[in-house]
C-alpha cells in the first residue's frame, strides 16, 4: 500500500509526463510543420494545399483543439486513478 504522499508524487510525475508529450505535439505541428520545416513540407500537396501552408493556416489549429480534449480526458482519468478527484 502506497502512502498518500507517494501517490500524490506519482500523480504529479504522470501529469508532467503527459504535459511533455502533448506539448511536444503542440510544438511539432505549429513551430515544426508550420514554420521551421514549412518549405520542405510545401513540396508535398495535401488536397489542393501545399502541406506546410495547410499546417500553418489550418492543421495546427485543429491539432490544438484535439490536444486539449485529449488532455481533459486523460487528466480526468488520472484524477480518479490517483484518487485526487475533487469532492
Amino acid at each position: 500500500m502506497k502512502t498518500r504522499k507517494e501517490q500524490a508524487e506519482e500523480y504529479w510525475k504522470a501529469n508532467l509526463s503527459l504535459l511533455f508529450k502533448l506539448l511536444s505535439v503542440w510544438f511539432v505541428v505549429s513551430f515544426g510543420a508550420g514554420i521551421l520545416f514549412v518549405d520542405i513540407l510545401n513540396e508535398f500537396s495535401f488536397f489542393g494545399f501545399k502541406l506546410g501552408f495547410w499546417f500553418a493556416q489550418q492543421g495546427a489549429i485543429y491539432t490544438f483543439v484535439i490536444l486539449i480534449f485529449i488532455y481533459v480526458h486523460r487528466m480526468n482519468a488520472m484524477d480518479k486513478k490517483f484518487d485526487v478527484e475533487e469532492d
Binding site: 498518500r4 504522499k5 500524490a8 508524487e9 500523480y11 504529479w12 484524477d79 484518487d83 485526487v84 478527484e85 475533487e86 469532492d87
Partner: peptide, 8 residues
C-alpha cells in the same frame, strides 16, 4: 491537486 485536502 484537484482534491481539496491533499498535501504530499
Amino acid at each position: 491537486y484537484p482534491k481539496s485536502e491533499i498535501t504530499a
